[in-house]
Design a protein around this nucleic acid. Sequence first.
DNA 1: AGTGAAGACTTCACTACTAAAGTTCGAAGC
DNA 2: GCTTCGAACTTTAGTAGTGAAGTCTTCACT
Lengths: 193, 193
Amino acid sequence: MADPRSSLDEQIAIYQREHRDLDPQVERVVNALSRLDRRMSVAYGRQLAALGLSSAEWEVLKELVMVGSPYQLWPGTIARRLGLTPAAMTHRVDRMVAAGLVTRERDTENRVRVIVGLTDEGREKWLEVMREASAFEEELLQDFTVKERTQLGDMLIRLLDRVSVQLDRSIPSSQLRSKHGQLAEVDTPHPHP
Amino acid sequence: MADPRSSLDEQIAIYQREHRDLDPQVERVVNALSRLDRRMSVAYGRQLAALGLSSAEWEVLKELVMVGSPYQLWPGTIARRLGLTPAAMTHRVDRMVAAGLVTRERDTENRVRVIVGLTDEGREKWLEVMREASAFEEELLQDFTVKERTQLGDMLIRLLDRVSVQLDRSIPSSQLRSKHGQLAEVDTPHPHP
DNA sequence: AGTGAAGACTTCACTACTAAAGTTCGAAGC
DNA sequence: GCTTCGAACTTTAGTAGTGAAGTCTTCACT
């Protein structure tokens, strides 16, 4: 790479000195992705902190809003979707109940289960964050034309599908779950309210 | 969005029901990025585990290889680059010394400082991981033409520059550091061995 | 020399997570 | 009807991080 256009290209040039077989075009994409995500996490973290919310709380709020009214999920479902253990969800829900963002109640149909529900305050917090976040995101993509945004989105979704295939292939079959959002219908306390 | 092409498009449609002002093209890009990074982290995590390495150890090895021979850095430098506190680095280095991946020694030129150096075993581990990882990454992008790879890389780097600007703008000026890799030359125990 | 301020790492107290064991409830088989 | 198995959450013990306080060294100045 004769004329690196960014610090990332410089870094990749160094990697190549250490390990010849690297494809620089591939490395560019992969390394840009991880750097980008790290910086965006920092940016979101600051915005959330300004609204008095932690990233952990935000993740849970998103899941609850995403299932739609009446905004209820079982703790185990949230844990699976976020890639956490049930134990971690127990504690997160504890904190969020204390903060007034969600409620925790026994499921009357199966008293082993627990239902986590969004409070009005939690719903309102979600909206506040989304208003700020969407402004930030809009600004992030301000230099991109509509066509470029579509292209970029399409390519990222192709990568997403691809990595999902690679992941499923390496998972012990006992852990396989139905793919994509299919669970939503059967994994929600009140599928059709 | 009449005809969602992926579970991601479905999710965005739900978000729009809850908050009208969202630009779906923007949301597609942003949400794909975060999903992609999460899944790739899982994939890398599995590969590393198979080689007996944690993600934390891998991050440190990368930084050390990246400065080139003689593969030495101060703990504080590594901590800054990884976005960790100095305290966290103290413990990481403890564990990695015990695992034989790095050495820790006092800097003879300034006895407040400590020098973390890569062992031959650490160097070899880095190579092992890179061999596996580059195969995985190559496969990830197998459906992309050379032109598409370049386009994607270019767009991601544009986003990277953009988010960096947005981040710097919201940082207290006392915390501002020189941008990009400029520190490398002055932030390494032996700049010109 | 001697003092004071600043810097670099470590230590301490605390927080959040994981893995595994424990508890309780519901369902299936005898 | 009782028992046993499995599922869902909670509890416990251990690990890795943060922020703040502490220790030692260097540097600038008297």
